[in-house]
Design a protein around this nucleic acid. Structure first.
Lengths: 153, 153
DNA sequence: TTGCTCCTCACGTCACGTGAGGTGGC
DNA sequence: TTGCTCCTCACGTCACGTGAGGTGGC
C-alpha cells in the first residue's frame, strides 16, 4: 500500500504525508480521538499539524496507532512497555539490516574470489593444457644432446 | 560473576543452581516475597523446588528478577510488557548470534579461498617457472622430426 | 447553527503490589 | 515456640481510557 489512487487524485499521497484529521485517524485506528491526543502528549506519536494547528495523521501514523492498539488491547501492555518495544524493534531492525548487508558483502567477496580463481585456472590451462597429449621437454636439452627423445630416457 | 567462592565451599555453585529460598531471593532482588510468587504465577520466572516444595532461586533467577524490577520500577512497564520485552530480547540475541556465526563463516570462506588461490599460484609457479629459461616442445614432435629443435621453428 | 477542532479536568476500571490470615514442617 | 514456608483473599494505588465541558474557526 505505497500509494492510493482516488478518482480525482492528482497529487501523490505518500505514507508519511499528513492527510487524516483526528476523527478519521481515530476511526481508522479504532480508537477514541482523545486517546490519540493522549498518546501524542506521551510522545508515542507525532502527527503533522495544519497551519491552523489541526492534527494531520499520515498512513504511517495510523499504522503505528494500530500497532499500539495491538500491544495495549491484545497483549495488555501499558504505554511504557510500548515505548520500550518500539526501541527494541528499532534495534532489531538495525541488526537485521546489518546482517543483510553482511550477507551481500560475503556473497560479493565469494564471487570475486571465485572469479579470481577461475581466472587463474584459465591462465594455467592456457599455458599447460595444450601440451597435455605428449610429454614436454626443455628445448635446450633437445638441442644439447641431438638425440631422439624417446631413447634419451 | 560465574561462580562465587565461600570459605568452606566444596561444591561448585553455578548460576543456574537453585540456592536461595524465597526470602533471600526477594531481598537480593529488592522485592516483596509475595511479588516473587506472583511473578511465578504469571510465568515470568520459574524457580526450582526442593523435595518439600520450597522455592529455590538461582543466581540467574535473581538476575532476571532484577531485570524485571528495572523494567517495572524504573521504566514503569507492566508485566505484559516485560514478557514481550523478554521475547524481543531473545529474538535480538538470536539475530546477533546468527550474525556472529555469519561473520566467522565469511572469514573462514575468505581464508579458504585465499589458500586455494595461493595453492594455484604456487602450482602455476612450479610448472611454469622452472622452464622459463628455455622453450617447451612436445616430445612427440621431437621424435617425429628427429631434428634439432632450434632449427625446427 | 452544526460539527468539527482545540484544550483541561475528572472519574471508572483494571493491573499490580503488598499485607493479612491461616496452614504446615524444620 | 519462633521463623520460615506454603497458599488464598482483599485492599490501596496508579496508569489508562474516555467522557464532560468550554473554546474557536470553517
Amino acid at each position: 500500500m505505497a500509494t492510493r489512487r482516488r478518482r480525482t487524485a492528482r497529487v501523490e499521497v505518500t505514507d508519511d504525508r499528513g492527510v487524516f484529521m483526528i476523527s478519521v485517524a481515530a476511526e481508522l485506528a479504532e480508537m477514541h480521538p482523545q486517546t490519540l491526543r493522549m498518546y501524542e502528549a506521551r510522545g508515542l506519536i507525532t502527527p503533522k499539524r495544519s497551519p491552523k494547528g489541526t492534527r494531520l495523521y499520515s498512513q504511517e501514523d495510523v499504522d503505528r496507532l494500530r500497532r499500539i492498539q495491538e500491544m495495549t488491547a491484545e497483549l495488555g501492555m501499558n504505554l511504557a512497555g510500548v515505548e520500550r518495544v518500539f526501541e527494541l524493534e528499532g534495534e532489531l531492525e538495525r541488526v537485521v539490516r546489518r546482517m543483510q548487508a553482511l550477507e551481500r558483502e560475503a556473497e560479493r567477496v565469494r564471487a570475486e574470489m571465485e572469479a579470481k580463481l577461475e581466472g587463474l585456472r584459465r591462465e594455467a590451462r592456457a599455458e599447460i593444457v595444450p601440451y597435455r597429449p605428449g610429454r614436454l621437454v626443455p628445448a635446450k636439452d633437445v638441442k644439447r644432446f641431438q638425440i631422439p627423445i624417446e631413447r634419451a630416457r
